[in-house]
Every structure is written in structure tokens, then in C-alpha cells.
Amino acid sequence: MRSWSIHRPGSSALHRANPLTKLAALLLLAALLFVLPWPGAWAGTLLLLTAAFGLHIGGVVLRRYLVLATPFLIAVFIFHGLIVDRPDRMPLAAFLSYSQEGLTYAAVLGGRISLMLAGSLLFVATTHPAALLRSLDVARMPPGLSFLLASPLLLIDEFTKRAGAIRDAQQARGMRVNTFSDRLRALRLLTLPLVTLALADAQERSGVLNARAFRAFPRRAVLSPPPDTALERRLRHALVAASVLLVGCALWLR
């Protein structure tokens, strides 16, 4: 089974930046989608993917980008360019016709998704989940909330390995997936052990958390907080303010 994490350690400025600053930048990127024309969104995507190569994470980011973006882009261009009936349809070849308006709409949607995807992949590739958890604690987020946001990120690869081990064990016992009824049976054989194990795990984790007085205090102290500077804090505030301003202006001028 595949690994979910595309995080790659490094020492670039983006790697060293506080995870909250990167999240604020991601917020600005989302706000930009409200005002950027579609060529701008595509140019932004290209810029971010190029930046990933400059940070030596280009390979992993581009691969994941292509795997995720390609099906959507193909679907959106075929559907809006060739299938949806619009007044400006022009014959293309044989029984096919296309719509310039539909293709432009597809470029708008594709550009938006591409830009957000490239931005979020850059974030994930340069941010370790543990660093995100620590920065949320430093930001005085309630420990329960930071636990919920970060612990799944730390558990995904472990559970993926567990699911792989259960699959191997069941296949060794004779599980087959040839017919439809085989597959339904296999679904039960694979999910029940995984979920039962997960519930046992949840119980153990809550016991450990309680034993450590996880929520005895409303805020947690962090022994090794991610680096943060006054300049970065000001930058975060500016990024959030700019995001609110952009969305406000876009809605006001609409």
C-alpha cells in the first residue's frame, strides 16, 4: 500500500518557516482565487511547481500534482468544452463539437484547483506533521483541537502498514477477490480487523493521554517550539489581513 506522506526534510527558507506562516500563505492563496483571472491562476501554478524544484522537492511535488490534477483537468475540459450544451458550439470533427465559452470556464476551474493543489503540496512537502502540532500548541490552541488536527497525520502511515499486514494475512488464509461475492466477503475480512484494532488503539491512546494529564491545563508548554520570529509573526498577520481584504473586495465588487 502507498505511503501518504510526501514530506521531505530540508533546510530551505520554506522548510524553516513556521508552519503557521505557511498556513497563512495558503489562506492568501485561497483568497487570491477570488480575484485572479484564469491565466494568473495557471501562471501561479507554474511558479509554485518551479519553486518546488528550486527547493529540491520538485520530483515528489510534481508527481503528486500530476496524479491528482490530471483526472480532474481531463474531466473538466471534456465535460465543459465538448459535452455541455452551450449557445456558441462549433463543429470540431465527425460528431464532436466544442464551445469556446465552455473551454474558458474549464480553464477557470482547472486553474483554481491547480493553484490550490500546488500550494497545498508545497506546504505538505516542507512541513512535518509534528512541527505543525508543536506550532499549534505554541499558538495556544486547546490541546484537544491540536491533537485532532495533527495526530491523524502522524498515524496514517502506521495504519496503512497495518492494513497491508491484514491484507497479506487474509490472502495467506485464502481470501480471494475474483467474483463480486468474493469481494464483498473480502471487504468484511479486511475492514473488521482493521477497525477493531483501531478501537483498541484509541482506548490505549486515551489511557496514555489521561495518564499524562493531557488536558489538565488549558494550554500546553512546548519543549522545542518551531522557530518563529517577530518578523514572521507580523508577516502572518499581514497575510491574514490581506486574505480578508481580498475576499471582501472580491465580494464587494461582484
Partner: peptide
């Protein structure tokens, strides 16, 4: 409660990994 927090955390992972199980059974 902390017990429910832990349950939610592992349930999120089950949701994500469940999709991979489906890659095998191909339903």
C-alpha cells in the same frame, strides 16, 4: 472526553485508509 478525542483521531485515519482497502477489493 479524551476517549472520544482518541476515537475521532483513529476514525479519521480509518476513513483515509478505508479508501486504500477498496483499491484491493475493487468494488
Amino acid at each position: 472526553e479524551t476517549r472520544v478525542l482518541s476515537l475521532i483521531a483513529v476514525a479519521i485515519v480509518i476513513n483515509i485508509v478505508g479508501n486504500q482497502i477498496n483499491d484491493l477489493v475493487r468494488l
